[in-house]
């Protein structure tokens, strides 16, 4: 008689190498953003950037079952989603540096990293901008008879945009294969979600659009993976959209100009103690999927990849200023 499997969902569902790869990408997200922050402070990057440090489990666990044919839409805090979907950190750094070798040939910067060929329809500078686009991508899959799903990332701030409501409604009436993943990191810039949103949980909004809604611990890799797994299965079965709310926290400010006046040091430290990477790594070690040396190697590999990415970006050529209007239209 088979013994009941008590391991967390992710560990009993995914192969060990897939789990180790997930940990590697989470480390890569963390080191990438730290590297980006470092480059910013050294004056190598202009503009601003929105860091998702502390939210890596939400990004990675939501992408576990996606293929290159599946789509994601992302947000201004989208580096994690890009890396989770398989983006190359060298080309991401190159984009940060405004280089021709960047994902957007230096035209987009931090807020517009995309890789349409691998299903990443792009980060978006407009809060809520990606929601209708995700629904459109799901509509394409349905009309073209493809099994692809779209995972639509957005933050707690977007849930009060009209686009959120219009998008969820249309996805529901047409039963489209889209998974709305709300990364509730508690603040829309400085405004607490608890103040700005009339319902206690953003997933409560799902009821208005007759779709399942669930709120999970967004720093628990397995909890996120499980919720998104069920939503994707539902989408692929033609049963329509779902709303998954991942409760998480950004360790850094909203952007590089944030002075953190709306939250306390204690609150930040409390959330840092719930580091999603450390928790996932501990789980993998506890269940024998990884040993400490293996974890150290993965972490070191991420450091090296980020360093190589920065070097690639630095050495890359800048766009030709005579091509300022290139890519406005098809060539």
């Amino acid at each position: 008689m088979a013994k009941a499997d008590n391991r967390p969902f992710a560990l009993r569902t995914y192969a060990p190498e897939k789990l180790r790869e997930a940990l590697r990408r989470m480390y890569l997200i963390r080191r990438f953003e730290e590297g980006a922050e470092d480059c910013y402070m050294r004056g190598l990057i202009h503009g601003t950037m929105h860091l998702s440090i502390g939210q890596e489990a939400s990004a990675m666990a939501s992408c576990m079952e996606l293929t290159d044919a599946d789509k994601i839409t992302s947000t201004h805090r989208g580096h994690g989603h890009c890396i989770a979907k398989g983006a190359n950190v060298g080309r991401m750094f190159a984009e940060f540096f405004g280089k021709e070798t960047g994902y957007c040939h230096g035209r987009g910067g931090s807020m517009h990293i995309a890789d349409v060929k691998t299903g990443n329809l792009g980060a978006n500078g407009i809060v809520g901008g990606g929601l209708p686009i995700a629904v459109g991508a799901a509509l394409s899959a349905k009309r073209l008879g493809k099994p692809d799903v779209t995972v639509c990332f957005f933050g707690d701030g977007a849930n009060n945009e009209g686009a959120f409501h219009e998008a969820l409604n249309m996805a529901a009436i047409w039963k489209l294969p889209v998974v709305f993943v709300c990364e509730n990191n508690r603040y829309g810039m400085s405004t607490p979600a608890s103040y700005a949103t009339a319902v206690p949980n953003i997933s409560d909004r799902a009821a208005a659009y007759a779709m399942p809604g669930i709120t999970v611990d967004g720093n628990d890799f397995s909890a996120v993976a499980e919720a998104v797994h069920h939503a994707i299965r539902r989408a692929r079965n033609g049963e329509g959209p779902s709303l998954v709310e991942n409760l998480t926290y950004r360790w850094r400010g909203h952007s590089k100009s944030d002075r953190n006046r709306y939250r306390t040091k204690e609150e930040i430290e409390e959330w840092m103690a719930r580091d999603p990477i450390a928790r996932f790594q501990a789980d993998l070690i506890a269940h024998g999927i990884l040993d400490q040396a293996g974890a150290d190697a993965i972490a070191a590999e991420a450091v090296a990849a980020v360093a190589a990415g920065v070097e690639f970006a630095k050495a890359s050529p800048a766009p030709d200023i005579s091509e300022v209007t290139r890519y406005v239209h098809a060539e």
Binding site: L121, P132, I133, A134, V135, G136, A137, L144, A163, M170
Partner: peptide, 14 residues
């Protein structure tokens, strides 16, 4: 939403 769905659909093959 409708215009956005059209944009997303155009981006992905329709």
């Amino acid at each position: 939403g409708g215009a956005g769905v059209a944009v997303g659909a155009a981006l992905t093959g329709l």
